[in-house]
Design a protein around this nucleic acid. Sequence first.
RNA 1: CGGGGCAUAGCGCAGCCUGGUAGCGCAUCUGCUUUGGGAGCAGAGGGUCGUAGGUUCGAAUCCUGCUGCCCCGACCA
Length: 571
Amino acid sequence: MRTSQLHLSTTREAPAEAEVISHQLMLRSGMIRRLAAGLYTWMPIGLRVLRKIEHIVREEMNAAGAAELLMPAVQPAELWKESERWSQFGPQLLRFTDRHDRDYCMGPTHEEVITDIARRDLRSYKQLPVNFYQIQTKFRDEIRPRFGVMRSREFIMKDAYSFHISQESLQQTFDDMYRAYTNTFTRMNLEFRAVQADSGAIGGSGSMEFHVLADSGEDAIAYSPGGDYAANIEKAEAICTDTASEPTEELRLVDTPDTKTIQALVDNFDMAIEKTVKTLICRASEEADADFIALMVRGDHQLNEVKAANHPGVLSPLTFATEEEIRQVAGAGPGSLGPINLPIPVVIDRTVAAMSDFGAGANVDDKHYFGINWGRDLEMPEVADLRNALAGDPSPDGKGELAMLRGIEVGHIFQLGDKYSRALNATVLDENGKDKLMSMGCYGIGITRVAAAAIEQNHDANGIIWPLPIAPFQVALVPINMRRSDTLRAEAETLYQQLQEAGVEVLFDDRDNRPGVMFADMELIGIPMRLVISDKGLAKGVIEFKGRTDESSEDVARDDVVDFIKRRLEA
RNA sequence: CGGGGCAUAGCGCAGCCUGGUAGCGCAUCUGCUUUGGGAGCAGAGGGUCGUAGGUUCGAAUCCUGCUGCCCCGACCA
């Protein structure tokens, strides 16, 4: 392709709205253009990247035995009412009516549609297992679309759904998908990690996320450098190996004016933050014998909201009590809460259970208890894993200590079980001729997000550094002052032809620009290899080669240059 | 949706406080020169200052409503 045909449109400055580097570079390089909040046009150069990503995903899915189909983006409300997600999904589901006043939505995901297909088309266990996938545009009316294409409202996803007669079969396909995803991201030359993930309200035994590693990633990943353990911070178990020491202090009630925060407690009373306890009050679930429930973590620890919401006594989604509600149930404001004389159920984190001689609010304004000890001063409440794991915690697999990484979630594989097959009554006849609910798995890759994540992971001051397998072009062919030399023009055209005939994806910069402009543009859009052809070089019989991340260029004999590039591509 | 901010040419910004001819850089167009790291000179085009109202002789500027966008929170590929 020639730059003159590509509509290459680059800018030196990024629009002020772009915050993260991938968004800035995608706008500057002309990959995408914004239409409205969370809606983007993929310009020719951006679309080439998308197609490359799709191609690899498609090949790996096909290789793993999945069958591609294409479902409608618009879905009828009936199906969603049947699964009860019409009411559960909330405002993230974009709904509208047609001319007959029938309800529809833009598909945010396709469990309902595929399960409907399955219950109509699958009759016998002999047809199982089966794994369908599609690569398709989704719409989720996100509260806050952000970071350009990283979290847009309209995006392209590869979503796959598998159907099984048994858990063993589901597990096997799940494992196949795990390998397919590993192959997929490996082939894209991305640095990634598969991590255990929270399976949320759906339950199920298996849920793994695939994260592209990048310092700017939104998700924290806890992993064991010496072992195989890796988990999303939402899921990572926080282990406490300490046990409570014998009490050495008396319990005492202390006046603590102007001490509403843990930090104030530490500052005003010279208290170690590890000797303080933070109390959070949230709404209780129906299982609890109260409207509210108190959760406690050590002063310097962070409540893990996913773990909290998963606790049976806690209302999901997690809803913190308002200050007014706190006053009603505890008799004091949020700055003076603690376990003693708190008339609601209490759940404490494992670390809190191992504390002694600690301080916490007295449930009276401006008063705290110091020297609290479990067993002596009050009964030990229920203990649970409530906090975020931290670097240095023991690894749950028993191998060494946890370390932290940041990642961008680009894939998720999930064992759904029979949640949707039950709701939509998707059954097949088993070997005894009896109806049996199929179990399901689902497997997603955010195609558009992969493009953004690849940039977050691979860029420098000059622009994008595409990994070769997903680069819009493999080679940039840059002629120097072609307009002044018919010889050079002819040579450049010939080389362009030869590269194309050799199957090389080459972008020929045929604009009448100064060299600096062309170099800067080719680097900004991130083409992995560059060939510079000039009269000067041709006089010596050479073409100049430079890799996108190379410090300097090297001369390659004109006659060898096509083979040289082919060898590079095969490497 | 709650909290904060912004809206002036395609992009980045100044002007607003203290009302009176709308400006700068990049980009675009023309001409000449230049040509191995985002050229120079000369010229040109392009803005109902987000929108609706109000105050005023006069509003980009002051006031009010609305809309859009960005940032922080909960959600997710």
